[in-house]
Amino acid sequence: MKMVLTAFIGNASFCSIFQSLAAFFKTNLPYILAGISVGGQYALIAIGYTMVYGILRLVNFAHGDVFMTAGLICFYLSLVTPLYVSLPLTAAFTVLLGFTIEKVAYKPLRDAPRTSAMISALGMSYLIQNLALYITGGLSKQYPQIPFISRSVTIAGATTKMVTIITPPLVIILVAALVALIKYTKIGMAMRSVADDFDTSRLMGIKIDKVISMTFIIGTFLASIGSMLYFTNYTAIVPTSGAMPGLKAFVAAVFGGIGSIPGAVIGAFIIGICENIIKGLGWTTFSDAFTFALLIMVLIFMPSGLFGEKKTDKV
């Protein structure tokens, strides 16, 4: 009798937990969906951070601003060309921008102390933001509607844009392609080697400059794809639009273990979802602060992140 009773109670409490969970998901579904979508977009930016950090040990502060610039480029191109031309052109110009930034701002400082390169990155970010402010005249620009992905759809009673559904599989495909590239091609092998030991790779005849350029090209290409998805949801572009997503993507990269691509992707999804659930709970003021609190927690308790390698400093 007693056993039946406890079993029954156990069952009941399990049921109620399940029910309340289900209720939680139901009321928060729009936020969770938004979180998954924005998480995927952060992931595409985070890959750029994590790859550059893995190779150059540099926090590329300008990366978020490159992401914003991709949005602006697309806006200006869409004024003169149809979308099927302007989207690929956007990616091309963004890649060119990332490539140029590396050549102009980071390459001359390759042998300088690390803080110099970091200050250069801050300066570059400042320059891009101010250029954007100058060109746009301080007015926010409306991102063009990309027909297919900005269509509204309804999932289990929650209305959202098509981009929400498309983002996760697209991110997974891109990441799989990238991982394959790094694993099986010659340039990928060179990248891994440079990330592991910069100086030795140089001695082994790997063309460092080529590898670094390639890293920036891949990073900015993914950021430009990210910008197409992100600005379809948040259509107003201002010069500081890239700063917050950029920082959050960086936090995602640290969370996942800097240098690790799958880590960055998983970190980005977790951050995107948590941030939106916090918004759903009515704590919008703290949705940005949460990301940084998470960052500090990660840095203190597991500095190598979820998938990062442990490293010790040598004298």
Binding site: R57, L58, V59, R114, T115, M118, L247, F250, V251, V254, T285, F286, D288, A289, T291, F292, A293, L295, I296, L299, I300, P303, D313
Partner: peptide, 23 residues
């Protein structure tokens, strides 16, 4: 909390604290 961190991590962590304070 943060001073045990090395250069760029320290920068990002202090930046994070400033943003939290602002919120």
């Amino acid at each position: 909390v943060v001073l045990k961190l090395k250069s760029d991590y320290l920068a990002i962590a202090t930046l994070g604290f400033a943003e939290i304070l602002r919120a």
